[in-house]
Design a protein around this nucleic acid. Structure first.
Lengths: 336, 336
DNA sequence: TCTTGGCACTCATCTGGACGGAGTGCCAGT
DNA sequence: ACTGGCACTCCGTCCAGATGAGTGCCAAGA
C-alpha cells in the first residue's frame, strides 16, 4: 500500500468534506479526483487511515470524516498557504485606506478579515508590553481627582482616574506632568516598572505622597493590569449547523476577552499558526479551529490577530488571508 | 362578550406563550388561569382577538400565538413593569462597584444587563453631544503630526491624529494647547461649532493655517462624525430556536454599530421604551423586540441602553431590569 | 504483494399510511 | 351570554418497508 497515496486520499477527503460538509465515500472520491485506482483500493487506504486515527465514520455505512488529528496532518503536510487573489489584495488596501486613528484601523481590519475568510475575526490591540510611551497627560478633573492618560507610539490611548490625598493646585499638576514625562517619555513599557519605582525619589518631598499614589496607578495601568483589548467581527458568519448542540458556548467564549487573550497569548510569532479542535485548552473552543498570526514585523510582535471557525474550514485560504492581513496591518502600524 | 375578559385572555395567552414557547389553546388556558368560564367561551373570545389581529394561529387546530400587535397591546395596557428583587438590586451595586474608568463601567454594565435579562444587552457610551469638554490635549507625535485628545466630563476620551502643514516647535504646540483650552474647556459640545468657527481669528496670523486645520479636525471629531460607541454583551443568550431560519441577520445587525445607534437615536427619553417586531425600521431586527431607556437623569440624556431579544420575551421583567440599570448607571456617571 | 471486482451486510434516510390528540368552529340548549 | 356537545382539521408520531450509499472481506488476477 502506497504511503503517498494514502496521504493523497486524506487530502482528497479533507478537500471534499470541507466543500460539501458531508461524509465522503470511496466511490465519490475516485470520481472527483483522478486517483487512478478503484474504489476498493481506496477503501483499503481508508481503513488504514481510520486505524491510524486520521478519519472516522459517523456511523457504519456512512462515508468518512476527517478527525482533528487528520486536519492537523493535512495542515502540516498536505496544504500550502494560498496566496490572495489580486482582487483580494486590492480589497485590503482600499479597505484600510482612510482609517483615521488606531481604533479605526483595527475596526476596519477586523471586518476585513471577517469578510475575507467568512468567519469570525479577532484582532488584538497592539500590546502595551511591546509599546513605547509617547506621552503622559495629567488632567485635573476635580480638586482631588486626576485623570492620567497614556499615549503610545502605536496610537493607543489608555486612561485612568486617580484620587489624590490632598487638593492640588494647577501648577503642581503641571510640575507632576513634566516630571512624569521627563522620566517616562520614549521609554519602553518593559522598562516602566524600574523607572516608576524610583519616581518618588526624583521629586520634592511634599509631592512624594502624591507621586507614590500615581506610581501605583501607573504600574497597575501599564504593567500589572494592562487591559489588553481586542476587536471582534463576523459572529454572524458562524453557522449553527457546524456546532453539535448550540453555538452558545462559542459565542460566550468569544465575548470573554480573557479567553481571547489567552488564545493569543500562546501565539507570539509572526508566522501563521493553527490550533485545531481538541488542541484548544479552552473547552468551549474545542469544536473550533483558530488560525492566528502575530503582526508587527519579525521582532516587533505588536499583537496577534486571527480567525475562529469550525474545524471544517478552508485552511489554505484562511491561512493566506490571515497572513496577508497580518503583514498589511503590521506595515501600517509600524509605519506610524 | 366582556371586553375586560378578552383582555384578560390576551394577557393569559402572552404569559403562557412566553413561558412555554408553545401555542396555547383554550383548554390549557382555563386550567392554568382562574378565568371562571368554560373553554368554549374562551374560544369565542379568542376568535374575536384573532379577528382584531392580536393573536394568530400557526395552522388550523393549533393553539394561538400573540402577534406583534398583541404584544404591543400587552405592553401598553396589560403589564406593569416588574421591580427588581432585592437580590438583584444588590447584584447591581456589587457588580458595578470597583469600576476603575468609563470603559470599565460600561463593560460591567452591559454584562450585568445581559445577565439580569438573559438577553443581548447594548449600552451606548455617553453621547458626545450632551457632554462638556473637560480638557483638550495636543501631543506632538512627530514633527508634522499632532495627536489631539479630547476628554469629557463623563470620562470619555477621544483621540485623533492631525497632519500639520509645517513642522511645529514645541513651544508652539504649548501655545496651541493653551489657546484651545482657553476657548473650549468647560463648554458644551453643542456649542463647539460656533466657537471653533471663530478659533482662527483668536490666534496670531502665522498660526492661522494650523489652527484652521485643527478646527476642521475638531469639528469632524466632535460634531460631524462623532464616533458614538456602544458596548455589547450576551450574544450567547440568543436562542436559535427563536429565529425562523438563522439568527445570522440579527448577529450581523448587532455588530453594525450604525444600526445600533440608529436604534438608540430614536430613544432619547429617560423612560423605558419597547419596540416590537415589525415596528422596527431595520429589517433584520423585525424578528426581535428591543427594550430601551435613556440614562443620565431626566434632562441630561447622556446616552441610551437596552436589550435585544425575541418578541417572545418577559417584557415586565426586562423592562424592570432596564429601568433599574439605567437609573443606576445614570447616577454613577453624573456623579463623576 | 498490491489491486480489483464481487458480494453480503449495515444502517441512515425516505416514503406512505394509520392513528391519536389537541384544538377549533359551530350550533342548539339553558 | 354562557355552556356542552360534536364534527372536523391537521400536526406529530410511530411503524413498515423500500432505497441506496457505503463498508468489509474475500478470492482472483497482475
Amino acid at each position: 500500500m502506497s504511503e503517498d497515496r494514502k496521504l493523497a486520499v486524506l487530502r482528497a477527503i479533507v478537500d471534499d468534506f470541507v466543500s460539501t460538509h458531508e461524509p465522503v465515500g470511496s466511490k465519490a472520491l475516485v470520481e472527483r479526483h483522478n486517483l487512478g485506482v478503484s474504489p476498493a483500493t481506496i477503501r483499503n487506504d481508508m481503513a488504514a487511515l481510520e486505524d491510524e486515527g486520521y478519519i472516522a465514520q459517523p456511523h457504519t455505512s456512512a462515508g468518512r470524516v476527517p478527525t482533528d488529528k487528520g486536519y492537523r496532518l493535512f495542515v502540516d503536510r498536505l496544504s500550502t498557504v494560498k496566496p490572495l487573489s489580486s482582487a483580494e489584495r486590492r480589497a485590503i488596501s482600499s479597505f484600510l485606506a482612510g482609517a483615521v486613528d488606531l481604533d479605526d484601523v483595527l475596526r476596519r481590519t477586523v471586518r476585513l478579515l471577517a469578510q475575507l475568510t467568512r468567519q469570525v475575526a479577532v484582532v488584538q490591540y497592539p500590546r502595551l508590553s511591546s509599546s513605547v510611551v509617547r506621552h503622559l497627560e495629567l488632567v485635573a478633573v476635580s480638586a482631588t481627582r486626576l485623570m492620567l492618560v497614556v499615549i503610545t507610539d502605536t496610537g493607543r490611548v489608555e486612561q485612568r482616574t486617580v484620587e489624590t490625598p490632598m487638593p492640588l493646585a494647577d501648577d503642581v499638576v503641571v510640575d507632576l506632568r513634566t516630571a512624569l514625562n521627563t522620566h517616562l517619555r520614549e521609554r519602553r513599557f518593559a522598562d516602566v516598572p524600574d523607572i516608576v519605582d524610583q519616581l518618588p525619589d526624583t521629586v520634592s518631598p511634599e509631592l512624594r505622597p502624591i507621586v507614590t499614589g500615581l506610581s501605583a496607578v501607573l504600574l497597575e495601568t501599564m504593567v500589572e493590569h494592562p487591559e489588553e483589548r481586542v476587536a471582534l467581527a463576523g459572529t454572524g458568519n458562524l453557522d449553527a449547523l457546524d456546532f453539535p448542540h448550540t453555538m452558545r458556548p462559542v459565542l460566550e467564549a468569544l465575548e470573554e476577552q480573557v479567553v481571547l487573550l489567552r488564545l493569543f497569548g500562546e501565539t507570539a510569532s509572526a508566522t501563521v499558526q493553527v490550533r485545531i479542535g481538541v488542541e484548544h485548552t479552552v473547552q468551549a473552543l474545542q469544536t473550533t479551529s483558530v488560525v492566528s498570526s502575530g503582526y508587527g514585523g519579525e521582532s516587533l510582535a505588536l499583537g496577534t490577530l486571527g480567525v475562529v471557525g469550525p474545524t471544517r474550514m478552508d485552511y489554505a485560504g484562511t491561512m493566506g488571508a490571515v497572513r496577508a492581513v497580518a503583514n498589511y496591518i503590521g506595515d501600517v502600524l509600524s509605519g506610524r
